[in-house]
């Protein structure tokens, strides 16, 4: 993203700037570069995050 640093979204946990290699999608999961917490994109316009849901018993591959 070419957005200036000042306008980059921030981690709701540690306030670090969050960046993406591609245009983010709603539901996409990423790790915060500051505190490594897992974040989920809850909206793209504007870009917002929430802590990603914790692993549940039936998750896997």
């Amino acid at each position: 993203m070419s957005t200036a640093t000042a306008t980059l979204p921030r981690c709701p946990e540690c306030d670090a700037h969050i960046t993406f290699n591609r245009a983010p999608l709603r539901g996409q999961v990423t790790n915060c570069p500051g505190c490594a917490v897992e974040l989920e994109v809850t909206d793209t316009e504007p870009l917002t995050f929430a802590l990603a849901p914790k692993v549940e018993e039936d998750w896997g591959e």
Partner: peptide, 11 residues
């Protein structure tokens, strides 16, 4: 949830 795998598949 959209993990890296899903975004790679989408692309």
């Amino acid at each position: 949830r959209l993990r890296t795998e899903e975004t790679l598949l989408l692309d």
